[in-house]
Computed example of a mutant assay.
Amino acid sequence: MIKKIKSVLLTTLLTSLIGSSAFADEASLRKAIEATYPKVKIESITKTQFGGLYEVFIDGQILYADEKLSFLITEGRLIDPKTKRDITGARMEELTKVDFASLPLDQAIKVVKGNGSRKLVVFSDPDCPYCKRLEQNELVNITDVTVYTFLYPLEQLHPDAGNKARAIWCAPDKAAAWQDWIDNGQLPKTTSTCDTPIDKIADLGKKYNITSTPTLIFADGKRMLGAYPAKDIEKAMSGQPSNKK
């Protein structure tokens, strides 16, 4: 979808709307974009403090435009030159926050480390190498946390991941089966069928625009994409800025 936005908006908007009548406010800007690309879902339009730029949040991506829609920036990062602060990154954290309390944690594999006082959600694909790296190299070094793993097979990339996710979920001990798969590449020897939440988790991922694994979600609702070092995950769990981009 993002590729469509980049190609269609850049070609259509820039060629057809440069020199057209001015769109003087957020509502007019919204109407202009919707009229040109009606299938795009605009989450929000916010005026920034920088040079008349408007932040346009579309399908999980931040774009920038002026009030006349005479240009559109699709892959830039807005930096405050005085503070060196990454404005785009900070805004993405806020705009993509997840309501942690609303997550159906009963549909996740629960693993308690230490006293389990902190909480971490991970969307993980059984065939994702970075998910295994996260578990084997990073999460193993973190304690006093309860990890909730949502099995989130990206079957367009890993065709057999769904079958593996179902086999792990239907095991008598889900947590042990997941760990055996991560550590040893072994699926449960006794295959059984059961009702799984895999389809519901897929819908949950679509709701929150989760398109890659691993995706980590912290108690404050912020997310981290990828197998980042344990120290960065620790910082994120404590609410401190991490090195993630």
Rank of each mutant, 00 (worst) to 15 (best):
I5H: 05
K6R: 12
V8I: 15
L10I: 13
I18S: 11
G19Y: 10
F23Y: 14
A24S: 14
D25Y: 08
E26L: 14
A27P: 10
L29S: 10
A32C: 13
I33C: 08
T36E: 09
K39R: 12
I45K: 05
T46W: 12
T48H: 04
T48R: 03
G51I: 07
L53T: 05
V56Q: 05
G60N: 01
D66E: 13
D66M: 11
I73M: 13
L78F: 07
L78K: 04
R85Y: 07
R85H: 10
D86Q: 11
G89Q: 11
G89Y: 12
A90K: 13
R91V: 09
E94P: 02
L95Y: 05
D99R: 15
D99Y: 15
F100L: 10
F100K: 09
L103M: 08
L105K: 06
L105D: 04
K110I: 07
K113R: 12
G116W: 01
V122F: 02
P126A: 03
P126N: 04
E135L: 06
Q136Y: 11
V147H: 00
T149L: 03
P153R: 06
P153D: 08
L154Y: 02
L157A: 14
D160I: 07
N163R: 02
A165V: 00
A167V: 03
A171E: 00
A175F: 10
Q179L: 00
W181L: 00
N184T: 02
G185L: 03
Q186I: 05
K189I: 05
K189A: 12
S192R: 10
D195M: 03
D195S: 09
D195V: 06
D195Q: 10
D199I: 11
D199R: 13
A202T: 06
L204S: 06
K206T: 14
Y208H: 13
N209M: 12
I210C: 03
T211A: 14
T215P: 07
T215F: 07
D220Y: 09
K222T: 09
L225T: 06
Y228R: 14
Y228A: 11
K231D: 15
K231A: 12
D232R: 07
I233A: 03
E234V: 07
G239L: 11
